[in-house]
Structure formats: structure tokens, C-alpha cells
Design a protein around this nucleic acid. Structure first.
Lengths: 184, 184
DNA sequence: AATGATTTGTGAATAAATACACGAATTACG
DNA sequence: CGTAATTCGTGTATTTATTCACAAATCATT
């Protein structure tokens, strides 16, 4: 697994860290590649070695986290306990608080929010197909329910970050998990 | 000034940091190059690129700090206020607490202590030659006084670290500075 | 709109770090 | 004591990061 050159890891880590920090301080439009390279203590050239531009960097960052969340879903798919699944999610949120907080509160803009919603809807439809068994399209009624639940999940996560983590992950897991159990 | 390749800086910083950390955990003899490279997240080869072995690494680390302390002495040599000079020292100690604490308490062994004393004696003799004016050897009486003061200074610094910083730098500056004023 | 400063994206040469392999030296341990 | 495992020190080829330079694009300020 660890076949990736450690220089690549270190450079990208530094770049992403610097970028997230800058995102908390200003809008993405007024962040310059120069600034990122300065903050990351990396040559400007190095950034272009890995990313097309700052939007590509943001994309990669987002996809990376979405990928990790999807992995957590697969882990939790074995045991059908929603509470545990939600717990994994919020623990992951907590361990990458700076990123998610930045991306889901006012500063981050709507880029991540819509991507996150899209992902949640995918997972919900996935779940639906498993229990339903039919691989054909969803009925209107099901679609409405999916949209309803997706908005609910994203909304409650947004609330959690907007309130600056008002309650711990295990509490959220308990409450949100119970709601999911009832609705799925 | 900043003509040194930033990769060198970063590698050496990582190596030195890892090494100091390991020094706090175990004796230098049972620290392996492998461990250092692992902790520093650097190739083992890279360490040999900069240092002969772990003792060379320790030497360079020590000399680096001695050099910085000498610089502080030169800065303070302009204004003859010993209190300010001592303040600069203890502020430097504080900002590199892990290193000095490790090297001056039981863990570090006597390597740094003797080097530190040697340096302090040099500075004292230097000071003496300036006020004395004569560039010839010191009399026995002067030599005794130098040794007396050197031991006192090193001793009080050791005490400060052994007690885990029982009082702030400005307090130490006040007290030790006053004692130096009286004796120099 | 003009212009002066900054940022950008890229090419090219160079330097540094890395992976990998190897025999020798050292250490751990039965 | 013997031997298995680890660490060491080094050679070498390769990959990555860096510096530097430069023209184009963007931005800021007038």
C-alpha cells in the first residue's frame, strides 16, 4: 500500500493544510497560489506538479473526504446498526474539524455542501436498492423520501458545525441514528 | 541569507526534532538511526546525507545552540546591562525547552553540560579580557573567580530545568543579572 | 484607459531525497 | 556458543522538489 513516495505525501499534506488554513481566513477567490506555497513552505512549482489550480486542489480535497466517508459507509454496511455508522461519521468529522467546519459554514461557500448532499443521496439510494432488491428506477414516492432524508442529514450536520460542535459524536450518533432506524 | 535549499532545512529540522524527542524517551545508546528516520518520516539514507552518525547529529545540535547563545551574548555586549543579557538567555531556553531540559537533566547525560560550561567559561574570560584590557594570560586569582562564576551560572541553569521552570525568565534575569552585576 | 505591480503558468537545469540492494557489523536470544 | 534477526553504512539509479527565468495574464491604482 505504502508505495507512494513519501515526498509526495509530505508535499501534498503541507499544501492541503496550508490551503485549508487560508480557506478559514479568506474567500477562495482571494487566495493565491503564491500564498499557498509560502504557507506550505513549498516551491510554487511543486503545487503545479500536483494540481492544475486551486480549484483542482479543492476538488481533490473534497473527493478525498467523500471517499473516506464512503469507506466508513462500507464498513458500517456489514453491521446494520445505524447508530454505529453515524458515530463513525461524526468521529471522522471531529478529527477533520477544520476542513468540514470551513466547508459547511458560511466561509466555505456552497461547493462542498452540494457535493456532500449528492453523496448522501447516492448512499441513501444505494441503501434503498439493497433492501428493495429491485435494480430499476425509484418510484416518485421513494424519490421524495430520499430527498427528504438527504436534506435532513445534511442539514443536521450543517447545524452541528454552525453551532460549533454543541454535543459530542456519541450523542449525535444516538439521536440521528435513532431517527434513521425509524425511517429506513 | 536564505540561500539554503528548503529541502535541507526541512529534512534537518525533522531529523533533529525526532532525535530530541527520542532523547527524552531513552538513552542515546539505545536510539537507532532507523528509529530516527522512522520518526522523522525521512529516508534512512537522508540522515547519512547530513550526519556521520547519531553522535555527529548530537554534536551539530549542541554546537547550533551554543552558537545561538554566543550570538545573544554579542547582542547584549553592546548594552552592558547583564539583566537584559540573562533575560535573552532564559527566553531562548524557554523557546527550546525540550532540548535544554533533556540535555541538562538526568536523561541527557553529561555531554552537553560540559560543553555548556566550557562555553560559559570562554565568555567569562572574554568579558574579563575586555575590562582588563590585557590580552595576556589570567592570573591564578582571576582563574579561580572565573571557574567559580562559571560553575555558578551553569548550576543555576541546571537547577531551573531540574525544577521544571519554577519561575519565569524575567524573574531569573532579575536575580541572576543582579548577582552578575555584583561579581563582574 | 494607462501603467506598474503582482500573479500565473511553464520550461529547463540542478539539487536533494528516495527506494532498493548488498555485505558487514552488531545485537538478541535460545 | 551459534544462529537468526536487526541495524548499519554505502553504491546506484530514479523520482521528486527546487531554483531561476520569462512572457502572458490579472489586478490595483490612478
Amino acid at each position: 500500500m505504502s508505495k507512494v513516495d513519501r515526498r509526495i505525501i509530505k508535499s501534498q499534506e503541507a499544501i492541503k493544510k496550508a490551503f485549508i488554513e487560508l480557506m478559514t481566513e479568506k474567500n477562495i477567490d482571494q487566495i493565491t497560489i503564491q500564498e499557498i506555497s509560502d504557507r506550505a513552505n513549498v516551491s510554487r512549482r511543486t503545487i503545479y506538479l500536483h494540481y492544475m489550480d486551486k480549484f483542482d486542489l479543492l476538488d481533490k480535497l473534497i473527493e478525498e473526504h467523500i471517499y473516506k466517508l464512503r469507506e466508513l459507509c462500507e464498513v458500517a454496511a456489514n453491521n446494520t446498526d445505524y447508530i454505529d455508522a453515524v458515530l463513525l461519521w461524526f468521529e471522522y468529522f471531529e478529527s477533520h474539524y477544520l476542513f468540514f467546519s470551513t466547508m459547511l459554514t458560511s466561509k466555505g461557500g456552497p461547493i462542498f455542501r452540494s457535493r456532500f448532499l449528492e453523496f448522501v443521496l447516492q448512499e441513501l439510494k444505494n441503501e434503498e436498492n439493497i433492501t428493495e432488491g429491485s435494480s430499476q428506477g425509484l418510484s416518485d414516492g421513494e424519490e421524495v423520501r430520499i430527498q427528504f432524508l438527504g436534506a435532513a442529514i445534511v442539514g443536521v450536520v450543517e447545524w452541528w458545525f454552525n453551532q460549533e460542535k454543541p454535543c459530542p459524536p456519541h450523542y449525535m450518533a444516538q439521536r440521528v441514528g435513532a431517527l434513521l432506524e425509524k425511517n429506513l
